[in-house]
């Protein structure tokens, strides 16, 4: 497969875009696209101060790298969760995040949950009896709380996270399965600031997870490859696997799922009963059956079209 831009051997193929690129052109394309999404969704401007939530994983480090390459003022925030899981998970992810910050001469804030609140995440979860035996609920809650606190206290204009399209599609899929209308109405690339809450943005929300992995590999970003020990068997991973099965059979399915949702949400088409009332039905002038158009109904239009065709197209016989 050849790079569409230079004809050299391609390194990345994005079937949903029918686009293959070599490593060099891929590394140009990703920041260009990110900038396009930042502008399209009005995430932030160049004069604003951005706090990037960095976990040591591929997505958040890639985001930090991209924003820096684009010339944004982006500082990092690492939250020490105190997760060991037999693989020194938090320790290793912090080491890789600090290594990235040092190598790129970037400012990194580190908040250790145990130092701030007396216990690491797994213990907080155990004591508080939240999350049905897994610390993921408490972890999410603590991360949201601390990210907002630091962004607000240190005067950042916006908080950026490395959520990719697979993350967003998996959340959307889960919320659709349960018809969680409140969550569905809130999901999007930008959560505007409100009383006490910093603006939150997801500049990578239109990149597949696979593309972010490819970006990190191509850029030589060293990230924590091991999964969080508590993520094994999680619902979000299961949904991602299901969506990848769909994507394999129907390239672009994940992207369409997410983008059509955003369009519907922006049009106000989601969960608003009054839209049904607005759609006034008329009687078809030919058959008298209800139709949403002002003229003939779809069936009568179809029959008219068939009847207007020459007999030869209909198989040579006059159907009348």
């Amino acid at each position: 497969m050849k790079c569409r831009k230079c004809g050299n051997k391609a390194s990345v193929n994005m079937r949903q875009h029918k686009l293959a690129l070599c490593k060099e052109h891929y590394l140009e394309w990703v920041p260009e696209q990110t900038e396009r999404f930042i502008k399209k969704y009005e995430m932030f401007k160049h004069h604003e101060k951005i706090l990037v939530a960095v976990s040591g994983g591929k997505d958040s480090l890639a985001l930090w790298d991209i924003l820096t390459r684009l010339g944004y003022q982006a500082d990092g925030l690492y939250l020490g969760l105190g997760i060991d899981g037999g693989i020194n998970y938090s320790h290793e992810s912090q080491r890789l995040t600090e290594k990235f910050a040092n190598e790129h001469n970037l400012k990194l804030h580190v908040v250790d949950i145990e130092k701030e609140y007396g216990q690491p995440i797994p213990v907080l979860s155990e004591i508080s009896h939240r999350g049905h035996g897994k610390p993921c609920a408490v972890c999410g809650l603590a991360k949201r709380h601390e990210m907002n606190r630091i962004a607000r206290d240190l005067g950042y204009d916006v908080l950026a996270t490395g959520h990719n399209l697979d993350d967003e599609a998996a959340v959307l899929f889960g919320n659709t399965l349960s018809w969680s209308s409140e969550y569905l109405l809130r999901q999007g690339p930008v959560l505007p600031a409100s009383d006490g809450l910093a603006r939150k943005v997801k500049p990578l929300c239109r990149f597949y997870e696979r593309e972010m992995t490819a970006y990190s590999l191509a850029r030589g970003v060293e990230y924590i490859y091991e999964e969080c020990p508590f993520a094994e068997g999680s619902q979000s991973i299961y949904y991602k696997e299901l969506l990848n099965q769909l994507e394999t059979a129907r390239p672009g399915a994940k992207l369409t799922f997410y983008l059509r949702f955003l369009e519907a949400r922006n049009r106000g088409d989601l969960f608003i009963e009054k839209n049904m009332e607005r759609a006034h039905l008329h009687s078809c002038p030919k058959c008298g059956q209800p139709t949403s158009t002002d003229d003939l109904c779809s069936f009568c239009r179809m029959i008219n079209k068939v009847n207007s065709m020459p007999a030869a197209v209909l198989g040579g016989e006059d159907i009348a």
Binding site: T213, L217, I237
Partner: peptide, 8 residues
């Protein structure tokens, strides 16, 4: 082969 799925 590098696994791309992460999350929890």
């Amino acid at each position: 082969l590098i696994a791309v799925i992460s999350g929890g």
